[in-house]
Design a binder for these strands. Structure first.
Lengths: 127, 127
DNA sequence: GCAAGTATACACCTTTTTGTAAGTACCCGA
DNA sequence: TCGGGTACTTACAAAAAGGTGTATACTTGC
């Protein structure tokens, strides 16, 4: 990969690339979307984002923090108390996810049929 | 993982899960977004979605087709001629990606700074 | 004291995803 | 006929992502 080859072509149609870098991660969109509800403690988040492991949840939270879309608040209490909040940027990003969410809801029937056939999917009965 | 454990908790806040199943894949959002411009031949798509390999592009196109968001048209000519079109569902999905794209464009400066520090990123000068 | 809950860290392993290199069958232009 | 273009396919390898299990340090409840 020469630098020239990278530079002489536009990245893509628009900023999608940038966004994708931030939200790619199995649980990231879910985390962001959930945080729209307000500051959330770690444990609460973990219960919300079902099936995520500690390791991965922490890891993705760190990455999202490093990307400036959320903030970690450590109350330095014992037992530990920490919560996570969206930054301004994070909020706008989370809101940009809403259409995706809506699409999923609208097309859930079709999707469920397809996924049931391919994998073994049974969830997604709405929240 | 008992079935009960899966069933007694709502999948998530909304249909995001469903959407994510469809669009997760390194190049899928890019593919979908590009196809908003109309039917596109394989080669054209490949040139648009820079850095993707044949194997992966084909693979993701197949998955997207299987998910009912795009259609493959084989003109059965020789040399081969094939193009890809969004279905109705695909179009609505691709449009749901627009806010993400907009977010990326708006926050590109911040993102670029961050990414430059972490990885070695130089692209993304707008299209 | 022992288990459970709090929010993590770390080592290790598996799965999933992506990439690389080559091959196919046919055509066109030099 | 050699090289390039078309749209793939396959075998193989590498990398990224995710998961598991254990440990921390301290508290509360039984």
């Amino acid at each position: 990969m020469s630098d020239a080859a990278i530079l002489d072509t536009p990245a893509f149609t628009c900023g999608l690339d940038a966004t994708l870098k931030v939200i790619s991660g199995k649980w990231k969109p879910l985390i962001l979307y959930f945080l729209l509800r307000g500051p959330t403690r770690y444990g609460e988040l973990k219960r919300a984002v079902r099936d995520v492991s500690d390791k991965v949840l922490i890891q993705q939270l760190k990455e999202l923090e490093a990307d400036g879309v959320l903030t970690r608040n450590d109350y330095r209490e014992v037992p530990p108390r920490v919560d996570y909040t969206l930054t301004e940027m994070g909020q706008s990003l989370a809101r940009a996810l809403e259409p995706l969410c809506a699409w999923g809801t609208e097309n859930m029937a079709e999707m469920q049929a397809l996924f049931a056939a391919r994998d073994g999917w049974g969830r997604g009965k709405r929240g």
